[in-house]
Design a protein around this nucleic acid. Structure first.
Lengths: 229, 229
DNA sequence: CACAAGTATGCTGCATACAGAATTTTGTTT
DNA sequence: AAACAAAATTCTGTATGCAGCATACTTGTG
């Protein structure tokens, strides 16, 4: 046990700073975030500190701290004296967010072409190929998750922490909606075609092209999701 | 008193949702944020819940909630068991953030040309003229504040809430640094020249041009601040 | 004199307790 | 029966208390 802890220490010392052990705070934040994304808590739901705390097995204090955190992330809204409510996003909110996301991903693509290593690009290609497999099998959930992974990977390859950070915030707000927005066959095919172009542009390190595709991809995403809101 | 409350209710009912009275939480968040921006709390400083609470006249509970909020905003970092620390931004962090900000402002400019009313553009022109007055007098602090106002105004004129939101987060992180980064006469003149082009492009509703200026403006900002970090 | 181990203090993280506001329920009056 | 008022209940906001961990200090040893 001591040796294991030491190993962890050394590992982490090499990689970055002191150990970040999982805390109750993080766990609650992650759990509530998931509950929102997966639809267990629908927009407009009032979050009852007593009940929710009992449900999660924590007292109100750390729960409230986690809720404040999620308010800052934009997933919850706070009415003074009336507690936290799952935020309701209007169609315009979603559209606005997608425009910004498109722009951010466009920038990320441009930077990724510049900063990504060949090995890293090969990893994205692998994700892409696995995603295409899932498309062939029409296996939606794994497809969806791999799709998200690819977008996240491109962000990561931009090697721009600030960009990753703001992208994550916006992405989290929309995850629920994109999760719902399961498009029909023809639109799905369109999204897949976009992804083919994406990986080609990335491998060619064609920054302008990749940026253009990513921004356009997000506009098409709006068309796919808009009628579902 | 009842009539006043009712009037407020009606007012707010028309505009958006229930009243948002100032809360202790918001006050603490704002206060600590200011303390960071104004340099009272320097990067690396460990925030002592006991002392800070006494200083602000609040108990640890609401203070901790406010700190969690600021952690989510990226102004503080949290070491489990060791409390909150004012986040230290590396030169790369600042550079990365400025690149993203440049991109966001570029998008905002594009959208503002599309969505802003003539009256709104005139208001920006007024801000600009007042800022130029302050430049003539070499009055740095009002100049700085008007400068910020103009950028914020362009963001607002994009009529894109999501864009405003993510911009604010990044802006808050850098405010301290830009506050320090008081450039010399020649660089200051350069920034002013940029602003002249900006307002011209906005009045001409030349989206491409405004977008280009704003993005480039942020790159120059980096050159102005980089040696101060 | 330097270094390590043990101890002591102080701080964070969490739970609980209390006060005030909001909401719901109940009773009364028209 | 409906509407309004008042009381009771419930929930949020804040303070305080306690346990465990991190850090600093002290003391003993090489």
């Amino acid at each position: 046990m001591a040796s294991e802890a030491t190993a962890l220490l050394i590992d982490d010392f090499d990689s970055r700073g002191p150990i970040a052990r999982p805390t109750l705070h993080d766990a609650i934040v992650a759990r509530v975030r998931d509950m929102i994304i997966e639809g267990e808590l629908t927009p407009g739901t009032r979050l009852h500190e007593g009940n929710l705390g009992k449900m999660l097995g924590v007292s109100r204090t750390p729960l409230r701290e986690a809720l404040k955190f999620l308010v800052s992330e934009g997933l919850l809204e706070l009415s003074p004296g009336r507690g936290a409510v799952v935020r309701q996003f209007s169609a315009k909110d979603v559209h606005d967010s997608l425009i910004v996301l498109g722009n951010l991903e466009g920038l990320a693509g441009r930077l990724a072409c510049e900063h990504a290593s060949d090995a890293e690009i090969r990893e994205v290609r692998q994700l892409h190929d696995r995603m295409m497999d899932m498309y062939e099998r029409r296996d939606r959930l794994p497809y969806f998750k791999l799709n998200q992974s690819i977008h996240s990977a491109i962000l990561r390859l931009s090697k721009n922490e600030a960009l990753v950070s703001v992208h994550n915030v916006l992405q989290a707000r929309l995850k629920r909606i994109r999760y719902i927005g399961n498009e029909g066959p023809e639109k799905w095919a369109g999204a897949v075609a976009d992804h083919e172009e994406m990986i080609d542009a990335l491998e060619a390190r064609d920054a302008d092209q990749l940026s253009k595709i990513l921004t356009a991809h997000m506009e098409k995403t709006w068309e796919r999701v808009s009628n579902a809101i």
